[in-house]
Computed example of a mutant assay.
Amino acid sequence: MVKMGTVWDRTVEVLNGRTGMIAPIALLGMVVPSVIRDGYVAFSTPGTISFALVGSVLAIGTLVAMLWSQLAIVAIATDPATDAASARRQAGARVLSSLGITVLITLVAVLLVIPPVIVLMSSSGTIPYVGFSAAGSAMLRTAPSQGRAAQFAILYFSVFTLIAIWIGARLALLNAVILNERRGVGAIRRSFQLTKGLTWRIIGVLILFAIVMLVSTWAAQSVTGIIFRLALGAKGIATATFLSGVVATIVTTVFTALAAVFTAQLYVAVREKLPQE
């Protein structure tokens, strides 16, 4: 049986021995792109076509860079024989697969969010019933009052959140599978196989990790935000906000890199449990 304590101990060992390799990749793939994106948003004029286009390109570039860095860190943490150059090459070869799967999962999530939104809009008279499919029209006609629509939306999103947490736990090894087993969409099924019997333990780790990360990020951003605002004055609020955001990005990057190492070690611990396909 895989013990999370043992996985954590191995994670610490990797960090103690390979932080010098991991840190530059995290800086290049997570911190720098995020700072460039946030800096553009903070100091550019919104509401223009160029702002939207450049912002979209930077957002996509940041996502690709973050996926690449996570894959590279997983490569470093999975195999002690992997050096930084090899990890970067492996990540580069698999980043498009990771991006495609990420987009697919995001699209599915967005589609699942649409039904309660439609019900809420229809109950408030924001959208007409005309133009929907028969099933959609029937759903809208039976959406009784705005109060009942809100209750439906709350219940829907509550169930959706619980299911999303469960699925997130089952996909915890997704990047490790994409990288090490060279799989595409099949990596989703493989991750589900590898995490069988570990779901609740992974959920516990995810919740604890999320709480610590959010509290640490909020504290760092709040404290540095106050300091920067006092130092820069009323005219430097935008700059102070941006700089405190940079600090928050650095803190988030530390936790993201830690999560990548942990999932890599979890993958190492469980990959022999099921036969390779």
Rank of each mutant, 00 (worst) to 15 (best):
V205M: 13
R141Y: 14
V117N: 05
T19C: 12
V103Y: 08
I227G: 04
A219H: 05
L104G: 08
V130F: 14
L107Q: 06
T249P: 00
A164R: 05
L63T: 03
N180H: 04
V261M: 13
Q70I: 11
L96N: 07
L243M: 09
A75K: 02
P115C: 09
A259R: 06
G184S: 14
L179M: 02
M30N: 08
A85I: 01
F192A: 03
T217M: 13
I202H: 00
S44L: 08
A75I: 09
Y129I: 14
T19H: 09
K3P: 06
L71R: 06
L28A: 07
I101E: 07
T142W: 14
F242E: 00
A164C: 10
I163T: 05
G225M: 02
V95N: 05
T253M: 00
W218R: 11
I154Q: 01
T161D: 12
R229W: 10
P80D: 12
L58G: 05
I207K: 01
I49A: 15
V246K: 03
T106Q: 14
L67H: 00
T106K: 13
G197C: 11
Y40F: 08
V95I: 09
V159K: 00
Q70P: 05
A238K: 12
R170F: 12
A264Q: 03
V130C: 08
F152N: 02
A84D: 03
G5I: 09
I22V: 13
V41C: 00
G168K: 06
S145I: 09
A23L: 13
L171C: 08
D79V: 06
V64R: 01
T239F: 14
M21V: 06
T78C: 07
A77D: 08
V7C: 02
E181H: 04
I76G: 03
M121C: 06
G184Q: 12
I207R: 04
V108P: 03
L230E: 00
V130P: 09
A75Q: 08
E272D: 05
A77K: 09
V113L: 15
A75W: 07
A52F: 15
S124V: 09
I237S: 03
Q221D: 11
M30K: 01
I154W: 14
L266G: 01
R10D: 14
P46K: 14
T256L: 13
G233K: 14
Q151N: 08
V177F: 07
V261K: 11
